[in-house]
Design a protein around this nucleic acid. Structure first.
Length: 559
RNA sequence: UGUCCGAUGGUGUAAUGGUAGCACAGAAGAUUUUGGUUCUUUUAGUCAGGGUUCGAAUCCUUGUCGGACAACCA
């Protein structure tokens, strides 16, 4: 019997609605504004909206919330669609809030007719003034009591382009239950909110057809309603908007979509706001939106994260209404877990020291075979050239090793992965005392697969044959920020950038990596998971480190 | 000083009046031709006070703490 996973609060709501017959099926939507790139926080929302529909046999629309022409561009539309598909989801319909401009306009007219909206000539400063503060009630606009006819005419004139930007707006006219002006509403959003503003701007889809555009509050809920979205799921900062959301639906007498809010994702050692990410890009702290250190979907994709691991992550973090700060270690766990199963093992030496096997014939090369992935036999084996001169990692040799050091040391034995057991006989140093070569002997009968030596060694090292080594560039990434909770840290968030978040080095790889492909994941044995970067050219291989391997040794040896 | 939302191990997330569980992280051990993987074991929690109840993480109440809200942004 499979253990049943408990439901999150949204699943409970949906199951209740279905059980009580409130809905026969559910319809959700993912509503990005095309003014930036998607990040992991959006992935949580995408997995939630699409996941809920998938789980309960419903559908999900992709709807671009494109009501502000000055910040929105088609370029973003394309990247957003690409990211959602990459994550593995398919939308039922591709819609745009701008598809509904005409209908939204009619909704506004209806509100005016009902005496629930008015054209206001106040300046934006005056309107801000009228709003009051969270602790003080607002005051009425002097234009609040214009007649329906005048408002109708003025609003039509706004649409017709008779007024310049900022000179007039359409405002909802909210009344309190006791008949008093809504400007005294305890919820700031209910204090006669602006619902249409004049912007003589070119829209990415409607072009110059409009010079008035609806505000978010007058577009989102109505768009949900038009599409008959059953569950409109958004983040916590929209909680105070819900009263308005419902107010419009009620007064417009349209399909009652319902809004539900969950806590957005926060991750340690990074930032998750479009504004801050944009700043990192514009000020060249990163190479672009797809810099592998960025939490954008394009960034983590380039970094080598898989859609599977991201979906798993979103599944594990859960959904609730309390603020949270997820340990980025959980994300790393998810990607390691997936990559461990699919990545092909390869050997790459990062900081080489030469090993000369003194009893191995000069000029001889033999091929040893090694499994591509011990987790998946179907991936088969590959051949690796072995010869007299090899590179191993500098850190795999210590002249004076501590007690539980399983690697190479004078007189000590180690296994070279998929090849022979060797013994360190002597150390060659330069004038400065730096180790330049290790002279070793190998045990011929210890060959991998036909080992008759009877010797058991504790350590196994990766290596590459000097004569056959292929040079490559690796880009090693670390956390973008030095502090766990960047948003909570003192001062400007950029003060906390990690200066060592990127290290580039040239490494020596086994020749098979010449055949590396962008869609194949690799584990450089004992070093981490890597993926080919698009910067790769015909004569330069470039790899991004997705994540390191879990490393108990460095952890315990540090203390 | 207002309204709204929230508070469970280090981090997340369950338990819906009846044994506080799971995952990550941490620790210990076993296996291992990756100090990886895998497998055992293990540390650690209900914000505080009062109340209702046979019984409270859960209900009531007061308080404390955290967050959101005053863009012609979404």
């Amino acid at each position: 019997m499979a253990e049943e996973k408990s439901l999150n609060f949204l699943e409970e709501i949906v199951e209740n609605d279905l059980r009580e017959g409130k809905h026969q099926t559910i319809l959700t939507r993912f509503p990005p504004e095309p003014n930036g790139y998607l990040h992991i926080g959006h992935a949580k929302s995408i997995c939630l909206n699409f996941g809920l529909a998938l789980k309960y046999g419903g559908k999900t629309n992709l709807r671009f919330d494109d009501t502000n022409p000055v910040t929105e561009e088609t370029e973003y539309v394309e990247s957003i669609k690409n990211d959602i598909e990459w994550l593995g989801f398919r939308w039922a319909n591709e819609f745009y809030a701008s598809d509904y401009f005409e209908q939204l306009y009619e909704f506004a007219v209806k509100l005016i007719r009902k005496g629930l909206a008015y054209v206001d000539d106040s300046t934006s400063e005056a309107i801000a003034q009228q709003k009051g503060t969270p602790t003080q009630p607002g005051t009425n606009s002097p234009f609040r009591n214009r007649s329906v006819e005048e408002n109708l005419q003025l609003f039509a004139d706004m649409r017709a382009g008779k007024y310049s930007d900022g000179t007039k707006v359409l405002r909802a006219k909210v009344e309190l239950p006791n008949g008093q002006s809504g400007m005294a509403h305890p919820n700031m959003h209910m204090r006669d909110p602006i619902i249409y503003r004049i912007k003589h701007a070119h829209h990415h889809r409607t072009g110059d057809a409009w010079c008035i555009y609806p505000m978010y509050d007058f577009a989102h809920g109505q768009s949900d309603s038009i599409e008959k979205i059953t569950h409109s799921i958004c983040t916590l900062e929209f909680v105070p908007h819900r009263a308005l959301y419902d107010w419009f639906i009620e007064n417009l007498e349209i399909y009652p979509s319902r809004q539900y809010e969950f806590a957005r994702l926060n991750l340690t050692y990074t930032v998750m706001s479009k504004r801050k990410l944009l700043q990192l890009v514009n000020e060249n702290h990163v190479s672009g939106w797809d810099d592998p250190r960025m939490p954008t979907l394009s960034g983590v994709r380039r970094r080598g994260y898989t859609p599977e691991s991201l979906r798993d992550f979103c599944d594990r973090i859960g959904v609730a209404k309390r603020d949270n700060l997820i340990d980025v270690g959980l994300l790393e766990f998810c990607v390691r877990e997936h990559l461990n199963k699919v990545a092909l093992r390869r050997m790459v030496v990062f900081d080489p020291v030469k090993v000369v096997i003194t009893n191995y014939p000069e000029g001889k090369t033999e091929m040893v075979s090694s499994e591509n992935n011990p987790e998946d036999e179907s991936t088969g084996v590959r051949e690796i050239p072995f010869s007299r001169e090899l590179y191993i990692e500098q850190e795999d040799f210590l002249e004076n090793p501590p007690k539980k050091y399983f690697r190479l040391a004078p007189g000590q034995l180690v296994r070279l992965k998929s090849a022979y057991i060797i013994k360190c006989e002597s150390v060659v140093k330069d004038a400065n005392g730096n180790v330049t070569e290790l002279h070793c002997t190998y045990i011929p009968e210890s060959r991998s697969g036909s080992d008759t030596s009877g010797i058991n060694v504790k350590g196994t090292l990766h290596w590459v044959s000097v004569a056959h080594a292929v040079k490559a560039e690796v880009r090693l990434y670390d956390r973008l920020f030095k502090v766990e909770d960047v948003a909570d840290a003192e001062g400007d968030f950029k003060d906390h950038l990690n200066p060592d978040s990127l290290k580039v080095q040239t490494v020596f790889a086994e020749p098979d990596l010449l055949k590396a492909k962008a869609d194949i994941r690799y584990q450089f044995m004992r070093k981490g998971y890597f993926v080919l970067d698009p910067d790769t050219t015909a004569d330069r291989l470039v790899f991004n480190r997705t994540v390191t391997l879990r490393d108990m040794w460095s952890k315990s040896s540090k203390t």
